[in-house]
């Protein structure tokens, strides 16, 4: 499946003007702060409306300015991982995940079954009744991931998921994410200003500067741009896990 996006938006003194298409499992958008990369993500998710453009996930067009198509974020099937996790502070872990679950008609599993499966999967057992304020950073991230996957998106967008963490935690978090990505069928787009991160997690990398794409290609190509990043190949540190889809009957 491919994600295609053409986005034009006037933004803070410059114009974002990008056009890309990707079939990779994990696409990275690499750029400095203020380069417009978060704006791309928000446009795809539907949290921001571009001035003009077209966005499609596979066959589904979710935004087309020419055809006056602008699907609500709720209907886009695009999950969004916020840098601050955005866990609902007044809800427990269980409730945070549960509210995203919408048992489709063809599944026979109930909401609570799905929630417990996801809780297991993301190592949150025992924390179901805790509030986000009483969770560690790592636990919060896992809840955020679980909540996103509970809504069964076709694509997941991640907004600088590790920027706020110190390097001690970062490694663990990246492993968590890689594990989650391994399980999930959909595609990922990760936005970051860290070359290392992009290289570790992504197959294809697009670099952005001043609202325009400055390069696109594989990990090696990105190194030319970054210069001096450690060479980490795809798959070398990804842990494997059982494919255990919480949404289907065992």
């Amino acid at each position: 499946m491919s994600i295609s996006a053409r986005i034009v938006k006037r933004f803070r003194g410059f114009a974002l003007d990008v056009d890309f298409e990707s079939e990779s499992k994990a696409l990275g958008i690499l750029g400095a702060s203020g380069s417009g990369k978060t704006l791309i993500l928000k446009s795809i998710a539907g949290l921001v409306t571009p001035d003009e453009g077209r966005i499609a996930i596979g066959e589904r067009v979710i935004y087309d300015s020419a055809a006056h198509v602008d699907v609500k974020p709720q209907r886009r099937g695009v999950g969004y991982f916020f840098q601050s996790y955005a866990l609902f502070p007044h809800m427990t872990v269980q409730e945070n995940i549960g509210i995203a679950v919408n048992p489709a008609d063809d599944d026979d599993r109930s909401q609570s079954e799905i929630v417990s499966c996801l809780t297991e999967r993301y190592q949150l057992a025992g924390l179901e009744h805790r509030y986000p304020a009483n969770l560690s950073g790592g636990q919060q991230q896992r809840v955020a991931l679980a909540r996103i996957f509970a809504s069964r998106p076709e694509a997941v967008l991640l907004d600088e998921p590790f920027s706020a963490l110190d390097s001690y935690l970062r490694g663990n978090m990246q492993d968590e994410l890689l594990r989650a990505m391994e399980d999930y069928q959909g595609q990922f787009i990760l936005v970051t200003h860290s070359c290392d991160e992009a290289a570790l997690i992504c197959d294809t990398i697009i670099t952005i500067s001043g609202g325009k794409i400055t390069s696109r290609g594989g990990v090696d190509k990105a190194f030319d741009v970054c210069g001096g990043c450690r060479a980490l190949g795809k798959g070398s540190t990804r842990p494997s896990s059982e494919a255990n889809d919480c949404f289907m009957r065992p």
């Binding site: 998710a45 916020f82 609902f88 007044h90 509210i99 995203a100 809504s151």
Partner: peptide, 25 residues
């Protein structure tokens, strides 16, 4: 507003957002 945005991305209708996210907060 980030909570409302997150709620939208996980598929909650505007009505559910008002009653389960906005009003409680």
């Amino acid at each position: 507003p980030i909570f409302m945005q997150a709620a939208r991305t996980i598929g909650l209708s505007e009505r559910r957002i008002v009653f389960r996210i906005l009003l409680p907060l």
